[in-house]
Computed example of a mutant assay.
Amino acid sequence: MKAYGQFCPLAQATQLLCERWTLLIVREFIAGSTRYSELQKGVPLMSPTLLSTRLKQLVKAGVITMKSESGKNHYELTKAGIELKPVVELLGAWGHRWAQTNLDEGDLDAGLLMWDMRRSVDPAVFPQNRIVVQFEYPDAPKGAHDWWLISEDGIIDLCLSDPGYEVDILIKSSLADMTAVWTCQRPFKQAVECGDIKVMGDKKLASNLQDWLKSSLLSRLGSLEELPKLNWVV
């Protein structure tokens, strides 16, 4: 990105952070991703070459650090990176309130949706024993129709191929309807009552489904009556 040629701290910050994809990579780190493969799932349309370039830029700028364990590399946010958390959350919440557009086909991505669900669900809502929730998206691209979220011993796993376990809850929905619910554009209960989202299986578990799935953090923040104030305590 061409430099602004200004000493202003905002200009200096945006020179680093406002290049294409950079803030989305920072979002992935804040959401808990530490490995290259995890980052790819959060930015699936980003080329591997560009992702590697942006990671090198963030390391050089001191936003992240790269470490190696058992021959495998992983990344961690530095203090500078951690201090970006309230900025990213506030910007995402602002985007939900003021920059949200009607979801069209180009904005829908089953893989990104399920990956975001996988890291956002609350495993404490379900029992410690294995609970399997299957999602069916008939309108998703070939190879992305069926997904399985598995909750067991406080750990959430995501499968694109049938893991072979008994399914406790089956959810059928269009990709657009589930995405609208996940981004707080539509209440889950309303979508179920209208029949746009169908929930089948264990009724007791299904009654806690909304507490387990929650919704996108940035969308939840954006749905508040007032945007949260920045909290710089690290």
Results as ranks from 00 to 15, higher is better:
2 K>H: 12
2 K>C: 04
6 Q>E: 15
9 P>L: 12
9 P>Q: 06
15 Q>E: 14
19 E>G: 10
19 E>S: 08
23 L>S: 09
24 L>A: 13
35 R>A: 12
37 S>N: 13
45 L>T: 12
45 L>N: 13
45 L>P: 00
45 L>R: 09
45 L>Y: 09
47 S>Y: 06
48 P>K: 04
49 T>M: 12
53 T>N: 11
54 R>Y: 06
58 L>E: 06
58 L>I: 06
59 V>D: 02
61 A>F: 11
65 T>Y: 07
66 M>I: 08
69 E>K: 11
69 E>C: 07
73 N>G: 07
75 Y>I: 04
75 Y>P: 00
77 L>F: 00
78 T>W: 04
79 K>G: 04
79 K>P: 02
81 G>T: 05
81 G>Q: 03
84 L>A: 12
85 K>I: 11
85 K>G: 05
91 L>C: 12
92 G>H: 00
92 G>E: 14
95 G>K: 05
96 H>Y: 09
99 A>M: 14
102 N>W: 05
103 L>E: 02
104 D>I: 10
105 E>Y: 08
106 G>F: 11
109 D>H: 15
109 D>V: 06
110 A>H: 03
111 G>W: 02
115 W>Q: 12
116 D>C: 05
117 M>A: 03
121 V>N: 01
121 V>R: 00
122 D>A: 07
122 D>G: 00
124 A>L: 13
128 Q>V: 09
129 N>M: 08
137 Y>T: 05
141 P>K: 10
142 K>R: 15
143 G>P: 14
146 D>H: 15
147 W>T: 02
147 W>H: 14
148 W>S: 07
153 D>C: 04
154 G>F: 05
156 I>Y: 08
156 I>M: 14
159 C>H: 15
160 L>E: 14
161 S>H: 13
162 D>K: 12
162 D>N: 15
163 P>G: 09
163 P>K: 13
166 E>A: 14
167 V>L: 02
169 I>K: 02
173 S>N: 05
173 S>T: 03
176 A>D: 13
180 A>H: 07
182 W>R: 01
183 T>I: 09
184 C>T: 09
185 Q>G: 15
185 Q>I: 07
187 P>C: 10
187 P>W: 04
187 P>E: 11
188 F>D: 02
189 K>W: 08
189 K>G: 07
191 A>I: 04
191 A>H: 01
192 V>L: 05
193 E>D: 12
195 G>F: 05
197 I>Y: 03
197 I>P: 04
198 K>P: 02
200 M>P: 01
203 K>A: 07
205 L>F: 03
208 N>Y: 09
211 D>I: 01
213 L>I: 07
216 S>G: 03
217 L>R: 08
218 L>K: 03
219 S>W: 03
219 S>R: 01
219 S>C: 09
224 L>T: 04
227 L>T: 08
231 N>H: 08
233 V>G: 00
